[in-house]
């Protein structure tokens, strides 16, 4: 046959996953704000892993002789109403914050993606029922919903994670449903269906891998929201219980002394702002970088 391509030695071409990652990184690097956000996130991780070994002051033991000490070379961020070093507590609180952010988003994303993909793939009645449930969840302001869930379950760090996860579900479900609807109509899905593939295979091998971008972006942005909501719940006394060095709880503790000793609330507040900001600007940058329509 004349049109047959001649055989050449079998070489493995570069994987498009690596290529794709490279182009995304290239676009991301052009976006200064996103890079700053990214470096901040890396820094937060380092702090949460290494930080606790480097701090010298105790985290929870009160030192009543040294209450309300202003920032100094000894206590960088000062001490609180029990004389505990605020810097130490913020460093130790970092891992709690990241844990809440990642755990709640992971759980929320898992169920949200599952609901979204089932809704989008099967459509009809299942879709209507699931999406109306999601609408009900969406109708509540996030913090109110989380508040209600924590009130029912009881206040603890674990329950805050569950509450934030639940109110993240509808966001993921809606985005994934939309993307699934778009991908499901493509001919390659029909092609594998014509081959006799089961629904499970089609969903996990052919639909999910092709809708990862919006899920990743949404997850990054949701982490910021999750951190904020979790802090708010702790501030209201429903989340982490004292003496856990959770930032929202620290804000709450410091509130009574705000006029005399600003550093009790200022530094935990700044820490929350920094984390939320970092994830938000990184998520925005990631969205631009992953959007194939915004080439260069």
């Amino acid at each position: 046959m004349a049109e047959t391509t001649p055989n050449q030695p079998v070489t493995k071409p570069p994987s498009p996953f690596v290529e794709n990652f490279k182009t995304v990184m290239k676009k991301l690097k052009k976006n200064k704000a996103a890079m700053i956000g990214g470096y901040m996130i890396i820094f937060f991780f380092l702090v949460s892993i290494i930080g606790p070994w480097l701090t010298v002051h105790p985290v929870t033991t009160p030192d009543l002789t040294n209450r309300f000490a202003p920032p100094s070379t000894e206590n960088w961020f000062g001490t609180d109403n029990f004389g505990r070093d605020i810097f130490t507590r913020i460093v130790h609180g970092m891992s709690i914050t990241l844990y809440i952010g990642f755990a709640s988003v992971a759980i929320g994303a898992f169920f949200g993606v599952l609901i979204g993909v089932i809704s989008g793939y099967y459509g009809k009645k299942i879709d209507s029922v699931l999406m109306r449930i999601m609408d009900v969840l969406l109708a509540f302001p996030g913090i109110l919903l989380a508040l209600a869930i924590v009130t029912v379950l009881g206040g603890s760090l674990q329950n805050v994670v569950i509450a934030v996860a639940i109110f993240s579900i509808p966001m993921f479900a809606r985005i994934v449903r939309g993307s699934t609807l778009a991908v499901r109509k493509l001919e390659y899905v029909d092609a594998v269906r014509a081959l006799g593939a089961t629904d499970v295979r089609i969903i996990f091998r052919h639909i999910l891998p092709n809708i990862m971008s919006p899920i990743i972006v949404q997850a990054t942005l949701r982490i910021a929201t999750a951190v904020l909501t979790a802090s708010a719940l702790s501030y209201l006394g429903l989340g982490a219980q004292p003496p856990t060095p959770e930032w929202g709880a620290m804000l709450s503790d410091g509130r009574a002394y705000m006029w005399d000793s600003l550093h009790l609330t200022l530094f935990p507040g700044l820490a929350i702002v920094a984390v939320v900001l970092a994830f938000n600007i990184f998520g925005d940058g990631l969205r631009d970088a992953l959007d194939p329509k915004l080439k260069d």
């Binding site: 493509l186 001919e187 390659y188 029909d190 092609a191 594998v192 014509a194 081959l195």
Partner: peptide, 28 residues
């Protein structure tokens, strides 16, 4: 079996040819 119209939409962009063919044989 079916062969589709749009050759750009009828193959999963994330699978190599080897995977595409392997999957067809594996399914059946």
């Amino acid at each position: 079996q079916i062969i589709f119209q749009d050759p750009y939409a009828s193959i999963n962009p994330r699978q190599t040819v080897r995977k595409v063919l392997d999957e067809a044989m594996e399914i059946q």
